[in-house]
Simulated assay, not measured.
Amino acid sequence: MTSTAFAPEWTLGATRSSHRWAQMPGNWDRLNTRALFPSGNRWGIPDLPPASAEPARLVPYNARHAIAAARPGDAVHFFLDDYRFETVWSKPERGLSRCCSVGAALTPDFSLWSNMPLAMQLWQVYRSRWCGAWLLSHGVTVIPTVSWSTPESYPFAFAGIATGSIVAVSTVGVVRDREARALFAAGYAAMLDRVRPARVLVYGTASATCSVGDVPVRAYPSRWAAK
């Protein structure tokens, strides 16, 4: 898998006293304004170039031994509880090492819950795409992960993903929950219509929902199924 050159527009957050600092203090930029990436949408969600990589295996970000044993063609995934990978946003320099060592990564799957305010859901999508753009700018091959909640999230849930890109989704927690299954099915159909992906990588069970249309699907077993 090859990486794509991707450069951010570097900025510096200024304060009344920042001109006196020889070095920026820790946690000075919690919103990651120092690296703003190109965007063609009204929210400023970073645009990611089309992904063409199809990983041989997916290894979890929090599994150090699995990452150390990763083989060429593998990719890091973030289908985990959010707190297990929050560092890729809060301390992006620290979060780089594991993804760089493998060479490829899916974008972080920050949760979108249907009972979240839309502003929070939008922020989660922004953070996911930003992390993808950040990894790309450091030579990591990136595959966008797509998440959505209710139809109200669709306008921004697919923003920043190039038409025809390979994308990744997760069905973990969906199959056995009737309401979640219905929301997933509706969002999946909307994603196919708007993104028109070349292929969908499914973490978990590739349910009947993922067979809609003629888009090819590749399923990867979740850690529960792999046991």
Rank of each mutant, 00 (worst) to 15 (best):
G73L: 06
P55A: 08
K91Q: 15
W43P: 02
R20S: 11
F110C: 07
R84S: 14
M116D: 12
L31F: 11
K91M: 14
V59H: 01
W21V: 09
S101C: 07
E86D: 11
N32Q: 15
D109G: 05
M24D: 10
W123K: 14
L106R: 01
D81Y: 09
L96I: 03
R84D: 12
S111P: 02
P46V: 00
G103T: 05
H77Y: 06
N27D: 13
L36R: 14
S97V: 15
W43N: 11
F79L: 10
A75M: 09
G44Y: 03
G73I: 06
F85V: 06
P38S: 12
R94Q: 15
W43Y: 13
K91R: 15
W113I: 14
G26W: 07
L36V: 15
R57Y: 11
L122I: 07
P72S: 10
M120H: 11
A53F: 15
A56D: 13
K91C: 13
E86F: 08
A105C: 02
R71L: 12
P72T: 11
L48Q: 02
M116C: 07
F85L: 06
K91L: 14
A69W: 01
A105G: 00
D74N: 01
S114Y: 12
L118T: 02
A105D: 00
M24S: 13
S97L: 12
F85T: 05
E93M: 13
N62W: 11
L48N: 02
L112C: 07
P25V: 05
D82A: 09
M116S: 09
P46T: 02
P60T: 10
N62P: 05
G44C: 06
A22G: 12
N32V: 09
D47K: 01
G73R: 02
N27Y: 12
S114I: 13
P25M: 04
K91A: 15
S101P: 05
T87Q: 13
Y61P: 03
A75I: 08
R20K: 12
S111T: 14
A75P: 05
L80K: 01
A70C: 00
D81K: 11
V76H: 02
L48E: 03
S101D: 08
T87A: 13
A75K: 04
A66F: 05
A119Q: 10
L80N: 04
L122P: 02
F78Q: 06
P50Y: 01
D29Y: 00
R42K: 13
S18T: 09
N41P: 06
L36I: 15
P72V: 09
Y61K: 02
A69S: 08
T87W: 04
R71K: 14
A66V: 05
R98P: 00
T33L: 11
N27M: 10
V59W: 01
L31N: 08
A69N: 07
R71E: 11
D81A: 15
F78L: 09
N27C: 14
G73E: 04
L118F: 00
Q23K: 10
L80G: 02
P92N: 07
P25D: 05
L118E: 07
A66D: 11
